[in-house]
């Protein structure tokens, strides 16, 4: 970290190699599109490199980096929603802007249940979606999630509870229970 703060690109490359998969998959879980996930995760590393001196001594790189990545993803989703809402307005369509969803090539071995679950995750709001992504897609412990979100474990548990409850509601309303059987 000391060498990174001094602007060493070789030292920063070590961080990139260590966290690139986490960054890519978290971005993918949040924005649901491979190209955007790659672009946003790389952009987050570029911004991290430029602002590396802001990491307080003794603090870990990843929680700090995660905030950059998350803000970029949220900002991207917001722009995407505005674009969609704008295009719908132009066409005079009465339907609200479409929910954020996963691209067809994002989920492994798709079937009806997986499609429904992925679709429901895509419909969660950002706060709930992120805990589901960190827990289920990156298999992070409550402690790691709390560290990344700068909150305590109690908040993580509570967010997970409401995120799962919402997910359950979304799945049970999907065609009256849908293929998930919930």
């Amino acid at each position: 970290m000391r060498r990174c703060r001094g602007g060493s690109r070789e030292a920063f490359e070590v961080f990139v190699n260590k966290y690139m998969k986490d960054a890519y998959f978290i971005a993918l879980g949040l924005v649901g599109n491979r190209e955007d996930a790659l672009d946003l995760s790389q952009e987050a590393f570029v911004r991290a490199y430029r602002n590396i001196k802001q990491v307080k001594p003794g603090r870990g790189f990843f929680p700090w980096f995660y905030q950059i990545l998350k803000n970029l993803c949220i900002s991207h989703l917001r722009k995407r929603k505005h674009r969609r809402a704008g295009s719908l307005d132009v066409e005079g369509c009465p339907e609200p802007a479409a929910a954020d969803e996963f691209s067809p090539d994002v989920v492994v071995g798709k079937n009806e249940v997986k499609n429904e679950v992925a679709e429901a995750i895509g419909k969660l709001d950002a706060k709930h979606r992120e805990v589901i992504v960190l827990r289920h897609f990156r298999h992070m412990s409550y402690e790691q999630i709390a560290e990344a979100l700068f909150c305590n474990k109690g908040t993580v548990t509570s967010r997970l509870y409401y995120a799962r409850k919402r997910l359950k509601e979304l799945l049970s309303t999907e065609k009256g229970g849908g293929a998930s059987g919930l």
């Binding site: 998959f25 790659l38 989920v107 492994v108 071995g109 679950v117 897609f137 799962r164 997910l167």
Partner: peptide, 18 residues
């Protein structure tokens, strides 16, 4: 029990490796 079912089906959803 409901949450266990939900967890099981959510865990099945994996993101594709590029």
């Amino acid at each position: 029990e409901d949450f266990k079912k939900l967890k099981a089906i959510t865990d099945e959803v994996g993101l594709a490796e590029p």
